[in-house]
Amino acid sequence: MEHTDSHIIAQVLAGHTHHFDTLVERYSRQIFALVVRIADSPEDAEEITHDVFIKAFKHLVRFNGTSSFATWLYRIAYNTAISATRRHRPEIRFSDEQLAAISDTKIDDALDDPTEQRIALLHQALDMLPPDDKALVTLYYMEDHPISEIASITGLTVSNVKIRLMRTRKKLYLLMTRLDET
């Protein structure tokens, strides 16, 4: 029988720390999948994933069950990955005017019937995004998390998540255009 997360957490908090292995087994792939998209290299991603579980174990007593354990773990992963990656990379900035000049549907039009080359371009553009934008794209588009859950993970409001996603779509379009021209 598969135990629920809350049952395992209660066991770990009662001193049976080896039960934490079940949580690691259950969530490490998902957490790594998010972190590896944000981090600079798979080696960094592995180290960050490691840190995420150590932090979760250390602060497990603070998990109060207001969100699911997975959301709580994603929140730790998001914060750890962002702070580990942010200091490494200079950010490509776009002005508000540049972003306002782009229609929100532009990126979708550009990817209508995408070729392999367009997907490679999108991949490159995605890699150029700042880590927090990349995390949003990964959570929303690649892992299909609902916006309310993303808000809970990132600490943003629902409307902020929507606005950030809209700006990120425009940034992706601008980056793809720039890459296409070079």
Partner: peptide, 23 residues
């Protein structure tokens, strides 16, 4: 279209090693 294109991006390699355990 964006969602489909993003999902078509290949998964980053390598994956998490098999010895990634709590032990």
């Amino acid at each position: 279209n964006l969602r489909n294109a993003l999902k078509a991006i290949p998964e980053p390699e390598p994956r998490l090693p098999s010895n990634f355990t709590w032990r």
